Simulated assay, not measured.
Amino acid sequence: MTMKKYAAEAIGTGALVLLGCGAATLGDLGGAPNSTQGVGPLAVLPIAFAFALTVTAIAYGVGPVSGCHINPAVSIGVWSAGRLSTLNLIGYIIAQCLGAIVGAAILYAISNGRDGGYDVAVAGLGQNGWSNISTASAFLAEFVGTFLFLVVIHIALIRVTGASVNPARSLGPAVFVGGKALQQLWLFFAAPLLGGVTAGLLFRWRSL
């Protein structure tokens, strides 16, 4: 049963990356061509809906099996709330990261089929990042965004960093895009995981 949970998390996270990042990469939404950070105002809602509807659909499919975390920050939040064992936390995170990489690989393969080819280093793969704000501001946005994601909503932060709030979702595209996406990846692990732990502890202490 445990392996079924890990498989469900891998499949769910892969689908999230494929469909969510695919909305930014393949949708031609008029925003920044290489990432979900800095997208135009008309692109924010379609991308947000793509991620939200994907999560909703996945929840029906894998929720009864694994709880549909599909996000290391969610898993670490559940762990810090005392509702997930350390062993399962490790298994969930490994499965989510592997699923995200596979999802990004499928998206890259689809994008490569475009007429004239596809330069992922230039056109990107829906990766997260920041450029017009300080690192401290980006960290704060991801920390607060993850905290709000676990308890409410975070749509306003999409134009700041792409509102990753999900280390696996950031990892998948970054593996293929490389360069700045990999250099900035640390923040999309550190801030969301810290935000997840904070939210989980507040639930554990019954402050939420």
Rank of each mutant, 00 (worst) to 15 (best):
T36F: 04
I76R: 04
L84A: 06
A104V: 12
G162C: 01
F188L: 12
A181N: 03
V44K: 04
I158G: 05
L84Q: 01
Q127W: 06
G124N: 06
G145K: 01
G14N: 10
F51Q: 12
A156T: 10
Q183H: 09
N34M: 07
P167V: 11
T36G: 04
D115R: 07
A123R: 08
R83I: 02
A81R: 13
S85K: 10
T54M: 05
G31K: 01
V55W: 00
G103N: 01
Y92K: 11
G129Y: 14
M3R: 15
R206Y: 03
I133V: 15
L187F: 06
A73Y: 01
V44H: 04
S111Y: 08
G129D: 06
I158R: 07
F188K: 05
I11P: 08
N71H: 07
N71R: 12
N132Y: 15
I90R: 09
L84N: 04
T135S: 15
N166D: 14
G178P: 13
R169P: 03
V44A: 12
L18C: 08
I47C: 05
Q183V: 12
V39N: 07
V160P: 10
V55N: 06
I47Y: 11
V65M: 06
V122E: 08
T13P: 01
A123W: 00
V165E: 02
L107N: 07
A191S: 14
G27M: 13
G179P: 00
A109D: 01
G200A: 13
G196R: 02
L202D: 12
M3I: 15
L202K: 08
L201D: 02
I155A: 05
I94L: 06
T2P: 02
T161D: 03
G116L: 10
L19V: 13
G103A: 05
A15P: 01
M1N: 14
A7K: 12
A156W: 12
S66H: 04
Y92F: 15
G195R: 03
G63S: 10
A73P: 09
G63V: 03
V165S: 00
Y118T: 13
V55F: 06
A95L: 14
L194T: 14
G30N: 14
A23D: 01
A181F: 14
A50W: 03
G195W: 00
A7R: 09
I158N: 00
N166P: 01
I70S: 07
T36W: 07
V175L: 02
G30W: 08
W186I: 13
I153S: 12
W205V: 05
P33G: 05
L98A: 15
Y6H: 04
S111F: 04
L19E: 06
G145L: 03
A52R: 00
Y118L: 09
A95E: 00
G116Q: 04
F51S: 09
P192F: 05
R204F: 14
A199F: 01
Y118D: 03
